[in-house]
Simulated scan of single mutants.
Amino acid sequence: MGKSNFYARRKGSLRRTVLLCGALSFLLTACTGRNPSQEEPLVLPDSLKLTAELPGEYPDQAKTYTVDWLEVEEETAVQALFKGETREWTQWAVGRQLLSEDEEVCESLLIYDGVVEGGLSYSYDTKDFSLGGVASYYPGYPDTMEQLNGYYGYHDMQDYATEGDLSFKGQSEASEEIEELLYACGFPQLQLQQAYLLDAKTMNEHLALYNEYRTQIQESREEYEFTQEDECYLFHHRQVLDGIPFANLIWTKGTRDMSTETVMYSLYGKNGILQIEARQFYEIQEPLSADAVISPEEAVAAYVEEYTKALQFEETEIFAVELNYIVMYDEGAMYAKPAWILSSKRKTQYEEATVDEYGVTAVSAVTGILIQNGTDLR
């Protein structure tokens, strides 16, 4: 599969100046005490677009903390979540599982304390068609292979509404119920990032796309029709500390020996919780320092500086910039450090199709250095 080439022109002819609007300048000055007019103008190559709305409000300082994996007490989680009568645990590589199953329902509670840590997985499965065929549970962006293989269509979450309520319960009430149950299990402060309303009409449309894909790969079709009884919410929550959410996107470059981004999604239907996946959450320990936070403009400038070192430029768009905590590790210790997370995408031509390739970059909110991996403590 060959990518099309984007050839670089001379840097002098590539650059253009992006002037921040007066309203944003006012917000930055009023809310943070910073005056953007005193900073260098943000200069971008012609092949790099900045469509993200840069945050106007962010803290002057952010702390660095030592952290450790969240430990969930088994009995506490059972009392909060589990409905079945079974009380026999099975040990797996990822943790300990409690399972209760009959002809209609399979209920599972898994406490992560093995090769995966910091949370739990709960499901109440009525053994109907899996929603994984009509929705993408995880936060983040579609990967290249999803798009090239032709099955992203039935995972396209943009088809689902994000505002409003389903008939059986309000969105806020359902989200808060999940949060309260996890707080009862000892989870730290949570923040709702995104909600999707999985309605019957859209699920059936996605199911048709799913069956079309299964036909292409010579697999049997899933004969199922969603009704209002099957409708549910899909929630994405994040751990939050000092008003700053923990990153839930993979921001590291290259191979890695440990995953540190928090992962959480949940499904809530007419009869209550259908599924919770919440792992790689943290217990917050001692604050180590409080440091000044660089502006999002400075973070973008650091990205631009690295981008312009390339021998050839690819048309790239920075579409999101957000202040997060990322977790680093060194010699058995873990640290939560503030970083600006930049999300970008570029069009890439393959033999099969042109797709969006997504990238996530972490820029230290203290030093302005692009962070490469979990052990890059600069």
Rank of each mutant, 00 (worst) to 15 (best):
G368T: 14
L148Q: 03
Q38H: 15
G164K: 15
T252K: 13
E88F: 06
Y196F: 07
L24V: 03
V304Q: 08
R10A: 06
S172I: 15
P59F: 11
Y65D: 02
H237E: 11
Y7L: 13
G119A: 03
T76R: 12
L19I: 05
G133I: 14
N373S: 04
P59Y: 08
P142E: 07
E179M: 13
F82G: 03
Q228K: 03
I276Q: 03
Q312V: 14
A30V: 15
Y303W: 11
G56L: 01
S167A: 13
A278H: 02
E173I: 09
T29W: 15
A310G: 00
L20E: 10
H237N: 15
Q372P: 00
T51R: 10
R378Y: 05
Q38S: 13
G254K: 03
Y7T: 10
E286L: 05
P296T: 15
E322D: 11
G33R: 13
L182W: 00
K309R: 11
F6T: 12
Y160Q: 06
C185F: 06
A301T: 11
E177D: 14
D143F: 05
M157D: 11
F235C: 10
P41R: 15
G22P: 00
T29F: 15
F6R: 09
E314N: 05
P36K: 12
L28H: 14
A320H: 09
E357G: 03
K83W: 00
E219F: 07
V293W: 06
Y325Q: 07
S364H: 05
F82R: 05
Y65L: 07
E163F: 04
L209H: 03
G12S: 13
